[in-house]
Amino acid sequence: MTKQKAVIDIGTNTFHLLIANVDEQQNIDIIHKNTIAVKLGEGGVNKGHIADAAYKRGIDALVLFRKELSKHNIKEVKATATAAVRDASNGKEFIAEALEKAQIQITIIDGLKEAEYIYNGAKGAGVLNDKTSLIMDIGGGSVEFIICNQNQIFWKQSYQLGAARLLADYYQHENAIEKSTLENIHQHFSNTLINLFEAVKTQHPKKLIGTAGSFDSFATIIALKQQVLFNPETMKSFELNYPEIMNLLDEIIESTHQQRLAMQGLIPLRTDMILMAAILTQFIIKRTHIEEVITCTYSLKEGLILSDH
């Protein structure tokens, strides 16, 4: 039996609406989707507060989503909020206003629940098998790591290392990032991710699966350079050749803001976010010695739609 479901993923950078039919084999047939670059964390992600302009953009996006849901005669929607709302002093106020103005009831989920939904998404995309994999989902406010195979999660954790958060802390100019700043970021990663690397030593993941927007961008840029097809709307995954992804990460890390603006396949929202995502991705690949890297286009919202909530 096919079920129609609707979910909203309220992220630090983007809000996603997904309406789909889900069959008994957990296949997703998308009826309607919309992604809005709300930038809810802009101006406040490291201050524990949703800034006024970002707050308004967030409520406006949810009002628009309600109109789209109404067009499809959908009343019930599962809406979850992650780091930007979770960590904000005015997060409860935002949730109350979303209910009042958009008739959308938001549930705040913690990082571990977020990791579970991301795992469900990757599993639904068919990118997992019997081999142990490391999933990495780089959001704006947080990053989730999941060590798993198709049958189970062995270890999961969420860290406050999102691209918007790192950007606010470490990069406020348009030049290429300084070597000393890069060293400070690496030190921050080393101090923060101790238990991740302990888990990697124990579980020995053989494949890195990148979910969420930054990895879609990596795949899009590489596909354009190689003149091969990558369409995140229709493809569930894309293999990233190891030398190509490492070269691209170097190129992004060494680039200026203007050079990133000119990069084919990079959307304006990610012009600077991609810098922090590249620094983190390169750090993880080098520290884990994983050489098989793939992009998975399913992440939290698909995991949400495949779950029983």
Rank of each mutant, 00 (worst) to 15 (best):
L248N: 06
N13M: 07
V127K: 00
G140V: 07
V22N: 08
L182D: 09
Q172Y: 01
Q227A: 05
K113C: 07
L196G: 10
N73S: 14
K207D: 00
T220H: 02
E254W: 03
K101N: 08
F15D: 02
G124Q: 12
N13L: 05
I59Y: 04
S158R: 04
T82N: 07
K39Y: 05
T192E: 15
K75H: 10
Q105R: 12
A223M: 09
A278D: 07
D87I: 04
Q25Y: 10
A199W: 07
L18A: 09
N149G: 13
N34D: 11
I222A: 01
N191P: 00
H309D: 06
G210D: 13
Q203W: 14
M276N: 09
I305E: 06
A98M: 12
A115D: 03
E97T: 14
I279N: 06
K131I: 06
V293Q: 11
Q25P: 01
I185A: 02
F218S: 11
C148I: 13
E183N: 13
A219I: 13
A61T: 15
L167C: 08
K301C: 09
I245D: 09
D216R: 07
A79W: 00
V63C: 10
G48C: 13
T211R: 02
E292A: 11
A168P: 00
I274C: 05
S142Q: 12
H32A: 15
A125T: 09
A81Y: 03
A20Y: 02
K301Q: 08
Y170I: 06
T107E: 15
L161F: 05
H49V: 14
L280D: 02
V63Q: 05
R270D: 00
V7R: 00
T2P: 09
V143D: 03
Q187M: 11
G210F: 03
D216G: 05
K101C: 13
W155R: 03
N151Q: 13
T295P: 03
A54Q: 03
L18T: 00
N231R: 11
L280R: 00
E239T: 12
Q150W: 06
G124V: 15
L240S: 01
K39S: 14
Q226N: 12
M1T: 12
M1K: 11
Q264M: 13
K236I: 09
N241A: 09
K5F: 01
D29I: 15
Q26K: 15
S217I: 10
L40Y: 06
K92L: 12
I36N: 04
L40C: 05
S255Q: 10
F15W: 04
G139D: 10
T14M: 11
E76C: 05
K3Q: 15
S180Q: 14
T192W: 15
I146P: 02
P232R: 09
L196A: 12
I118S: 05
S214Y: 05
E174Y: 11
A219N: 10
Q172D: 07
T132G: 04
L240I: 07
L240K: 02
Y170N: 01
M276V: 04
V293S: 09
K179V: 09
T35L: 13
I8E: 10
K75V: 12
T80R: 11
K5W: 02
K179F: 01
L112P: 00
K301L: 15
I19R: 00
F145P: 03
I252A: 01
A176Y: 00
V38W: 04
Y55G: 12
A61V: 13
A83G: 00
G43Q: 12
I95A: 11
Q172L: 06
K179N: 13
I253Q: 01
